[in-house]
Design a protein around this nucleic acid. Structure first.
Length: 219
DNA sequence: GTCCAGGGCCTAC
DNA sequence: GTAGGCCATGGA
């Protein structure tokens, strides 16, 4: 166990507070948590700001379309029009319908999809699969994204060429297997990535460049 | 006008 | 097996 992995989580949490990603009680999801809605959101936010993805999600909700049967039955062009604000709308319409077909046909009702199942769907890569497992189904799968890689490479805890799997192992082997912790940690990394450390290789004003991490950080 | 956002697929070497 | 191109909107 490398204690730094958890220590960084504590520092981020102290700095930014709980981020309240899915299940969401905040701004973008007024409703109760719905695994399907979270799954759709995970696709819509691919390489796209959450505000743009949330608009698309809202468009689906206000039309009563947050249902795999309905999305699968829609004309693809119509679906693309509705999710336009999330960008890549033709691709995302296609991907959403692929996810829905899987949920309706391949998956058993009310069962949690496996990671392999999700990766078999066109348009679902490792990050989206783990996001769906973690935030929709509360499976402890640590989500790795570009922020995570950048931050932990700079800190020196990961190699530049580390694969998704290697980075995921870094977290999962050094943290208790806790889906709540994983979900909050990933959200905090994203928040931190937006706040600071954008272009400079190492920012001295960064929260992680102080305190007990300082010596390690600068070494 | 430029850069970026809660990626992933396809193609060419 | 991997680097590069492509998908595309909306906010800073």
């Amino acid at each position: 166990m490398n204690p730094l992995i958890h220590r960084i989580y504590e520092l981020l949490l102290e700095t930014y507070g709980p981020q309240g990603w899915w299940p969401v009680r905040g701004t973008y999801f007024p409703r109760e948590e719905d695994p399907f809605e979270v799954t759709v959101g995970a696709v819509l936010t691919q390489n796209t700001s959450w505000t743009n993805a949330a608009r698309a999600l809202e468009g689906l909700r206000e039309r009563g379309l947050l249902d795999p049967h309905r999305i699968a039955a829609l004309e693809k062009k119509e679906l693309a029009r509705i999710v336009r604000s999330s960008g890549y709308y033709n691709q995302k319409a296609e991907r959403l319908q692929g996810v829905c077909r899987f949920l309706l046909h391949a998956a058993r009702r009310d069962s949690i999809p496996t990671r392999e199942d999700l990766l078999g769907i066109k348009g679902i890569g490792p990050e989206t699969a783990d996001s769906i497992l973690l935030y929709a189904h509360h499976v402890p799968a640590f989500v790795i994204d570009a922020y995570t890689k950048r931050l932990f490479t700079r800190i020196g805890l990961a190699r530049e060429d580390a694969s998704y799997t290697e980075l995921q192992q870094l977290f999962m082997e050094n943290l208790p297997r806790d889906e709540g912790l994983y979900g909050e940690y990933h959200a905090l990394i994203v928040r931190h990535g937006k706040e600071v450390c954008r272009k400079v290789p190492l920012c001295n004003h960064c929260v992680l460049a102080r305190g007990d991490l300082c010596a390690f950080y600068r070494s």
